[in-house]
């Protein structure tokens, strides 16, 4: 043991491997810049960073895992196609989500001849995703029940309401970013968010 505690030993092969990996020292901005220069090997790092958030967003919008999977793939194809037009001064998150959002809306338009505001079927949340946070099994079950009920009600909201709710509460986006993703003014985001919450409460009270 060293003078100030246990010595930290890092195997030399790990250090060498890390130093040879171009992603080790590159930041997210570097990856985006490399992607803009046409270096597609940077795509893996960018995709890995956004995969869960983007998939969740698409899942909430489309309410169908297969469709979310397909539109996720289409999104990255479109990103590669359009990355040259991305302005690095803007938030990449908002740009990426707006690409995904437009593809999801196109998908819904093709899939349904009815209005985008028509209700969708609810999503399924497997019980194994229950978080174990020191609660009793009964508390966990109640918590799960509440989450499931809320998710089912959210799934029944129109897509424009689901969109603002997931961007605000799950993606934690500011109103300006939501406006950029949805391509609407901030005042519309505010009113849409308010109506989405009112609608959510109305449906929950009916349950």
């Amino acid at each position: 043991m060293g003078l100030f505690g246990p010595e930290l030993r890092i195997p030399i092969d790990m250090i060498l491997a890390a130093s040879m990996n171009p992603d080790t020292f590159s930041t997210h901005e570097d990856s985006i810049a490399r992607l803009q220069r046409g270096e597609l090997d940077a795509l893996g790092a960018v995709m890995a960073r956004y995969q869960h958030r983007l998939y969740r967003f698409l899942h909430r919008l489309l309410q169908d895992p297969i469709a979310a999977d397909d539109v996720f793939q289409q999104t990255w194809l479109r990103v590669i196609e359009k990355i040259g037009r991305y302005d690095a001064r803007r938030q990449f998150d908002a740009w990426l989500f707006s690409v995904a959002r437009n593809l999801a809306i196109d998908y819904l338009r093709l899939r349904r001849s009815s209005s985008l505001d028509s209700p969708d079927e609810s999503g399924i949340a497997p019980i194994e995703r229950l978080e174990a946070g020191g609660q009793s099994p009964l508390e966990q079950l109640l918590e799960f029940e509440r989450g499931t009920v809320l998710a089912a009600v959210v799934a029944k909201l129109p897509v424009i309401h689901r969109e603002v709710l997931t961007l605000r509460f799950e993606e934690d986006m500011k109103l300006e970013e939501i406006a950029e993703v949805a391509g609407i003014p901030i005042s519309t985001v505010k009113s849409r968010l308010g109506r989405a919450l009112e609608s959510l409460r109305g449906k929950l009270e009916l349950k």
Binding site: F144, R146, V154, R201
Partner: peptide, 14 residues
């Protein structure tokens, strides 16, 4: 409600 929306069950990414 806001807190519930932040803690919705998450879809698992394939």
């Amino acid at each position: 409600y806001a807190s519930g929306l932040r803690g919705l069950p998450q879809p698992s990414t394939p």
